[in-house]
Structure formats: structure tokens, C-alpha cells
Design a protein around this nucleic acid. Sequence first.
RNA 1: UAAGCAGGACAGACGAUCGCGGCCGCGCGAAAGCGCGGGUGAGGAAAGUCCGGGCUUCACAGGGCAGGAUGCCGGAUAACGUCCGGUGGAGGAAACUCCCAGGCCAGUGCAACAGAAAUAUACCGCCUGCGUGAAAGCGCAGGUAAGGGUGGAAAGGCAGUGUAAGAGACUACCGUCCGUCUGGUAACAGGCGGAGCCAUGUAAACCCCAUCCGAAGCAAGACCAAGCAGAGAACGAUAGGCUUGCCCGGCCUGUUCUCAGGUGGGUCGCUUGAUGCGGCUGGCAACAGUCGUACUAGAUAGAUGAUCGUCCAACGACAGAACCCGGCUUAUCGUUCUGCUUACGCU
RNA 2: GCCCGCGUAGCUUAAUGGAUAGAGCAUGGGGCUUCUACCCUCGUGAUCCCCGUUCGAUUCGAGGCGCGGGUG
Length: 111
Amino acid sequence: MKFTERLRKNHQFQFVYKNGRSVANKYFVMIIKENGLEVNRIGISVSKKVGNSVVRHHVTRLVRESYRLHESMFNSGLDIVVVARKSAAEASYQDVESALLHLAKLEKIIR
RNA sequence: UAAGCAGGACAGACGAUCGCGGCCGCGCGAAAGCGCGGGUGAGGAAAGUCCGGGCUUCACAGGGCAGGAUGCCGGAUAACGUCCGGUGGAGGAAACUCCCAGGCCAGUGCAACAGAAAUAUACCGCCUGCGUGAAAGCGCAGGUAAGGGUGGAAAGGCAGUGUAAGAGACUACCGUCCGUCUGGUAACAGGCGGAGCCAUGUAAACCCCAUCCGAAGCAAGACCAAGCAGAGAACGAUAGGCUUGCCCGGCCUGUUCUCAGGUGGGUCGCUUGAUGCGGCUGGCAACAGUCGUACUAGAUAGAUGAUCGUCCAACGACAGAACCCGGCUUAUCGUUCUGCUUACGCU
RNA sequence: GCCCGCGUAGCUUAAUGGAUAGAGCAUGGGGCUUCUACCCUCGUGAUCCCCGUUCGAUUCGAGGCGCGGGUG
């Protein structure tokens, strides 16, 4: 991903949770905070409630893939945290893609 | 052909495009890194963390008590609670499967309810003697565990002799126990002789016996780099701390606690191993030896996915390595191979 | 990674290996009252699942499932 880094540390996530603004739909919760950098930073959080290890990895990959394929549409200079909800375990790739773009439109961070 | 039993293998495949983590090579770059090319990249259970071992550090090269685990016998193994082969028991018509399977004739405990009585007994009953009574019967003293109902369990079973009635009191068969002989490494099996059999169940009750067990865990541990600030309290050699829970013994000399401050980066450990596969030899087997051959993930918030097309058993279950092995247990859509048993039919 | 604990009615809980598993709250029916509340009375359980030991298991043993906690 050319224009994007990843959020890795727990304190980065906590900062976004405390200071960001959030929006949600059936599958995901998206939390946004401007980071003052040139690039976006994305973090994906899938808790143990969603499923076992295989299911959680799968959800993570679907989110990362759909973000990657639409990376150029997003505004830059944002920290984005995507939290998966329980129903995301049964979602297909098309569901994830449309849900992610829907949330991005709600936040008006998409071109 | 059908039903079943046992053991093994596989765990969607191929192509295209876009992406991800290591590794190798080349190029650019001071470096970080970037680009191109090549090759590689999750499991049969990677899971649960229930056992065992390697490895590393600590302690000791030392003893006792406590505690824990295992539990028919023999073997395999680095080791095991695992595996193999036997013995005994249970199930099945069979192939075959299952069993925490040492010891209540060491000690202690428990056995509700029912029942006369639960580890010791006479409620009903049976019988004898005496008394009373015309008799039936009643009362007293005694004998008796064959019969009765209860119960998981009622003092070997069954048949006969015997007897007033009965009783292993006696006898045959079966069972039990003891001794001895034979076979077997052993568990055990079989034979012979004796005891007429003073005694139930429970040790997944305490316990006894035999064997084994030092502790912690790769966030172990080793190294490099960066950075910081100390202060207070208690006790101080008849003290404090470490050493396995305790004791003895041993070691150290400042130790412990509280508050505050700093870092939270990198390298190694890290994958070649009690390794996999194939052949041969030994062994009933588990397994061992030997020869050949292969190298097949090493991330550090954590890499395998998405889309399209074709195929099928037709939408593909259970499920993701985190130091590494050997097992056990649990989850699982299905496909397939081999051997065996029984029934039916045909030749 | 390592180590503990718990699971009983809708909720909070009790139990020596021997009940029909006992309470309180809640809830449903009935009574009392003109009505409601209070009060009285009657009812309502897969002892988390499964296998075993035992004559008999909530209790003992093995395995599983779920929940909670400690520690690095």
C-alpha cells in the first residue's frame, strides 16, 4: 500500500478511540482522527467475540484488501480504525467492500 | 451384493490478474530502504495445555519429613499417565472391541431407607421339655438358620445322609482358601493333597505397599545500543536474605519495603532434528540397527487473501505455527485403498 | 506462556455419598379487600454436558464446554 502505514501500538489505538469521531453500520465501526501527516494510517481491530483465529484473520484480510483496492479514493492525513462487529464473521468480500465504502461516504473522507 | 470390524492415505485441483512474510542474486543509495528477477511460505489436528522429554537459567553436587504422580505381567523408548505383546474379566453370532485391573484374612471409617437382625441378631416359623387346660391353645426354659418377607449385600451353592427339628455335623460335584508339583521370564494356567470354610461391600474413603519426581520457563537466557535522579522508612551480625513447602545443612553481606525517575530499540536464541521417505537386517509387534535420499515456514501486533475462468466428489468440514519434539484428548464435510467376519445368490 | 477458582429455579444462594434437591426474591392461580398494596395458600427445576466408580452421585474420578481471576 503506497500511501498508507499501519497503526501498531496500543497507545496509538487508544489515542484514536479517545479523540476521534465514529460512525457505524451492520458490520463495522469506523473511527477517524486527523494525524497531521502526509499519509494515512489504518488499524484493524477484530476481537475474540467475532470468532476463532481463522475467522478473525479472514475478516482482517478482507478489510485490508478492500481498503487496498480503493486506497487512491481516500483523503490523506487520517488515522482510521476499523472495528469488526460480530456479524462480520459471515460477511463476503462484496459485503465488506460495500460496507467500508458506505462508512467512508458517511465520514466524507472519500473522493 | 448387503451389513459390519480393523488399519492406512487425502484434506479441493489447474490457470490468469492484483497483493503479503522470509531467503538468494543483481541494480540504485552514505544509510534506512527501494526496484527487478528467482525460489519458498500453516495442520491432521497447528487446538485443549492433560502427561513426558530436549534446551536454558537458578540452586545443589545433600540428607530427612511433607507433598504429588503412577498401579495385572513382560517388553519398547530419551521419557511418559504413551505404544506393543500377553494374563484375567466384560460384551458380541463372528471379525473384533472395552477395562484407574495392586492390597479391605495391616489398621481406621462408612453402608441411608427397608428389614427381626447389617457384622451381629431369634420377629414369624420349626422342634423338645415342664406347667396349665377336656382339647385347641397359652405361658416358661431351651435347641435350631432349613423356610418367610426386606435389601445391593443375610455367613458358600446344589443334591443326599442324618436329626426331635436342624446345622459342612457328614458325603459326592462345583466354588473358596492353604500347601505342594509341573509349564511359563512373569502375570497366570493346570494337576495333586489338605481345610468342612469365623465370614459382606467399599481403597475413583482415609490409608498400606512398590516405583518415580529439585525449581522455573524462549516474555527462558546471552549480547549491543540509548537513557535516567534519587529520596524515605525498617532491620542490622543473638540480624536480614537466598536456597523447594518445612527442618537440618550450605551460601551471601548489607538486605527488604514504599514513593519518584528512565527505557520499552536491535541482534542472537530460531530451526538439521531422539527429522521425514524408501530399501535391507533383527524382532510376533511396538521398535532398533544400517544404507541411500530429501532439507520442507520462522513472523514479532504477527505473513497464504481477493476477483475471474475451467473441472469435480458441486460451493468444500474442523480449524492458523510463535523454542522444538514424543504422546493423549477433543472438533471434523467428505473421498479413497487394503485386510477380515457374517448372511444370501451364482459358478 | 504459566497457574488458580467457579458452574444448582428467571435472579441471589443452601447441601455430610442416602429427600420428592431446601430457602429468599421474582412469577402464575386462588383467598382476604369495594379496589390496590400488605398478608395467607398452592404451583413452577435437564444440579453445565458426557463417560465411569458405587447398591446409590449435586457431592468421588476421567474428558469436554462456558465464565471469571492472578502472574510474567
